[in-house]
Simulated scan of single mutants.
Amino acid sequence: MPFEIALTDDVTLRELTKDDAVALAHSYRRNREHLAPWDPARPEAFYTEEWHKERLWAQVLENSTGRALYTVLEADGEVVGRLNLTDIVRGSFENGHVGYWLDTRFTGRGLMTRAIEALAAHARDALGLHRLQAATLPHNEASQAVLARVGFERIGFAPGYLKIAGQWQDHVLFQRLLHG
Rank of each mutant, 00 (worst) to 15 (best):
T86E: 10
H122N: 05
D9H: 12
L7R: 04
A23P: 13
P159R: 15
A23Q: 11
R90P: 04
V22Q: 09
L24Q: 03
D125C: 03
D103P: 01
A68C: 06
N84G: 14
D103I: 08
A68N: 05
L147P: 06
L173T: 12
G91A: 15
W38K: 00
W101L: 13
R82K: 12
G66Q: 02
P40K: 01
G110T: 11
N140T: 09
P43K: 08
D39V: 02
A45W: 03
A126M: 05
L69A: 07
E117Y: 00
W168P: 09
H122E: 01
L162R: 15
E54S: 13
Q144G: 14
T71F: 06
V172H: 11
D19L: 07
G108H: 07
W51A: 00
A41E: 14
W51G: 01
Y28W: 14
V22W: 05
I5M: 10
T17D: 03
Y161W: 07
A23T: 10
T65E: 15
Q133D: 11
Q59L: 10
R14V: 13
L73R: 11
A23M: 09
R176L: 07
Q169N: 08
H34W: 12
E153G: 11
V79K: 12
D10M: 07
A68P: 08
G151I: 04
R82L: 15
G81A: 06
A6V: 00
A68S: 15
A36W: 07
E117A: 15
W101G: 14
P43Q: 07
M1C: 03
A142D: 03
T17C: 06
G66R: 01
H179N: 10
L119K: 06
E153A: 13
F174L: 05
L69N: 08
R105N: 05
E78Y: 02
V60G: 02
L173P: 00
N31G: 02
R67I: 00
L129P: 05
L16V: 09
E74P: 05
F152N: 02
L69D: 10
E117N: 12
E74M: 12
L24C: 03
T107F: 12
R30G: 06
F93G: 02
D10C: 05
L119E: 06
K53Q: 15
R30E: 15
N31D: 13
H171A: 10
N140P: 11
R176A: 12
W51M: 04
E94C: 14
W38F: 15
A68Q: 07
R124G: 08
L61M: 06
R90S: 14
Q169A: 09
R114W: 02
V79L: 12
F3W: 07
F152G: 01
D87V: 06
D20V: 04
A6Q: 13
Q133K: 06
H171I: 06
W168Q: 06
A118W: 08
H171D: 11
P37W: 11
L137V: 11
G110H: 09
L35I: 10
V22S: 11
W38Y: 14
E44C: 01
H139C: 04
P40R: 02
I5K: 14
H52Q: 13
